[in-house]
Every structure is written in C-alpha cells, then in structure tokens.
Amino acid sequence: MLEIINLHASVGGNEILRGIDLKVNAGEVHAIMGPNGSGKSTLAGVLAGRESYQVTEGKIIYNGHDLLEMAPEARAREGIFLAFQYPVEIPGVSNTYFLKAGLNAIRKHKGLEELDAIEFLKLVKEKAKLVEMDETLLSRPVNQGFSGGEKKRNEIFQMAVLEPKLAILDETDSGLDIDALRTVADGVNKLRRPDNSTIVVTHYQRLLNYIVPDYVHVLVDGRIVKSGRKQLALELEDKGYDWLRDESVVNA
C-alpha cells in the first residue's frame, strides 16, 4: 500500500526528517511513536501533502503512485485521509456542506455518481451514529465552537464518511479524556477493514490499548530508531524515550 524510501524533509530550512524508511501493507495498523519534536507530525503532514514542508530527498510510493507528485486533493481522492492534530475551524461553512463537497469530489474521481442532499443526509446520520457524534454538530460551522473532544470525534466522523484506504491519525488522542479516547478508538476500530491501513501517530502508549497496532516504530530526531511489535509500546511506556535517543546517537 505505502512505501516510504529514505525520506528527508525540511521546514523553513531545518531538516526534520532525516531518512525515513517504512512499509505499510494493506490491513495493517502501524503506530509511530516518539518524543516531542521528533518529526511525527511532519511525517503525517508530508503524507497528506502539506505544502509548508519541503521534501529534499527520497520518495513515497502509494498504491503504485508517486505520492509526492500529487496535490493534497488528489491524494484524498486516492484514499489518503489525515485526521488533524489541530482540526481547523472554518466559520461560515457547515460541517455537512464541507463534507458533501469532499465526498462528492472523491466519488466523482472514482467514477461513482455524486450523492444528492437526501442520500448524503442518510449517510451522514448513519456514520454519526457509528462514531457517536452529536447530530447537532453536523449543521454547525466546521469545528467552530467545538470542544477538543468534539473536534477529534469530527475527524473520525469525516473518516467514516470518506472511507479512506490509508488513514493517518495525527495525535488524535492528545488532550482527550479516557471516555472520549475510547469512543474515538471504537470508531477507528469499527472502520478497520482487511484492505485498509492505518498509521497512528502518538506520543502516548495509552491509545494503543484501544487501537492495537501490528507494528510500532519509534521516531527520534527524524529517524526510525527502533521497530517492533506492540510490546515495544509498553516498553516505551516504562522506560521513556531517552534510552533510544542515546542508542541512536551511538549508532550514528
């Protein structure tokens, strides 16, 4: 599904990613963990096509496409979905209008018929139920006046409607209380399918109790310094990241 090869990326001239290699197959859940500033969100942003990041070296192959050549909207239409760490408030644009425009653009790209207002409403009501989102949020402006938990749930709701092939959850757990975390994780689990993959970017191990990963990768200073199975996450919870940082300095 996704292959990242020797990826280097900078923000404003500072190199953040310094050679990432990662392979994600269909049906897998990968967790990317790491301390603050290690480049986790940069990696998520590069995958979604955030233009403030410059890729200086390496490539990303996504389902046979050269991902870095694709505009953010083209990536979304090909099934990439980023759940934002900080979902954006858009005054004056209703949640449903926004999502309908997105869904229909994706459907059109797939050669499917666009949904009309009634079909769309039926779909969003069903999906709102699935992720336990308050229906009154649907007609409100995108994320405006939403609580932190509602914003994160709205991301998962959008994911449920758009049905991506590759979902990237960027710190979807940070700032959530345990109940909100559980509902968000439940939503993600309900959407898991054998042909879909998920990359969970997180600082804390807690989320991985609910979204159980197949692989865990530790990102330190822009490199993956350790990969393993889900037990690695527990080990990190115990020992923190410092031992890996020292290890990476030694290896370098």
Binding site: A48, G49, R50, E51, A71, P72, E73, R75, A76, R77, F81, L82, F84, P87, V88, I90, P91, G92, V93, Y97, F98, L99, A101, G102, L103, A105, I106, H109, P141, V142, Q158, L162
Partner: peptide, 28 residues
C-alpha cells in the same frame, strides 16, 4: 492557508476550496 489545506485534504480542489472560504466570508 491552513483552512485551504484542510479542505483540500478532504478531496476538494484548490479553486473550489478558495471559493468556499470566500463565499463563507461574504455569507457572514
């Protein structure tokens, strides 16, 4: 720019994303 990126990340093309934001600004 962040709002434009948000809209694009959901499949909406750049031109349409800009229009949606301009329209919302006027609708106020």
């Amino acid at each position: 720019e962040e709002a434009i990126f948000y809209l694009r990340s959901r499949g909406i093309d750049l031109g349409k994303a800009r229009d949606i934001l301009i329209f919302a600004f006027a609708s106020d």
